[in-house]
Amino acid sequence: MTEEIIIAGFGGQGVLSLGKILCYSAIMQNQEVSWMPSYGPEMRGGTANVTVILSDDRISSPVLKSFDTAIILNQQSMDKFVNEVKPGGTLIYDPNGIVHHPERKDINIYRIPGAALAAELGNPQTFNMIIMGAFLKVKPIVLLENVKKGLEKSLPERHHKLIPLNIEAIQKGSSNVETVHVL
């Protein structure tokens, strides 16, 4: 199994940490991983994306031109990456701020209202874990127990008290992902 993923949105949405936690979670399953971030000089508020590769085999290069899955969190990223999803691939997106919704018919498309659900939880910082939950519902390639281990590994110890809230956010995202189009 190899899964090539792009996660893209604004800086401050937890794009890079979502990718990092996903990688740590896959490492807990003895998978090979690649994490390659890209962000503008603006950081918070500027565009940010991360390419993540999870594989049972060695990864030859972290550089990708097309993706099995795209997780899109803003319009600029939708414009840039919607056509980079491989035919038969998957697009997961948060509709908040999306003006031009994806219309491709050769990919699976799912929507997760992550910003609204994070507001419901009373903590906007859970946004990226809500998105993680949607991803894991659609593509269960990492076990929840390993995501918990990944959170423990990637979060500073002073933030470990937030792990139960993050797990709750993952479960909320998993139970609220909406199917837009499936092949």
Rank of each mutant, 00 (worst) to 15 (best):
V142E: 00
V147A: 05
P124K: 13
F127P: 01
F127E: 09
L144D: 02
N123S: 15
L151W: 11
M129A: 01
P113I: 07
K153G: 10
I130V: 05
L144Y: 06
H159W: 13
A115Y: 04
N108Q: 13
P113G: 07
H160M: 10
Q125A: 12
K139E: 15
H159T: 15
I131Y: 04
F135M: 11
M129L: 03
L151R: 03
L143I: 11
I112K: 00
G150Q: 06
A116E: 06
N146Y: 04
E152H: 15
L162A: 15
A116Y: 05
G150P: 03
I107K: 00
I109W: 02
L155R: 08
V142K: 00
K161N: 09
L151D: 14
L144W: 04
M129V: 00
L155Q: 06
N128Q: 10
V138Y: 08
G122C: 13
H160P: 05
N146Q: 05
L151Q: 12
I141Q: 07
I112D: 05
V147Q: 04
I131M: 10
P156Y: 10
Q125S: 12
K148R: 11
K105W: 02
T126D: 00
A119R: 03
N146C: 06
P113S: 10
H159L: 15
M129P: 00
K105I: 03
G122E: 11
H160A: 12
A116I: 05
K148C: 04
L144G: 04
P140T: 11
L117Y: 01
N128K: 10
R158T: 14
L117E: 00
N123T: 14
V142F: 02
E120L: 00
I109D: 02
D106W: 07
N108E: 14
E152R: 15
E157Q: 11
A115G: 05
V147N: 04
L117H: 03
P124I: 14
V147Y: 03
V142M: 00
G133M: 05
V147G: 03
L144R: 05
P156E: 14
K149D: 09
P140D: 11
Y110G: 01
E152W: 14
I112Q: 02
K149W: 07
A115H: 05
P140H: 10
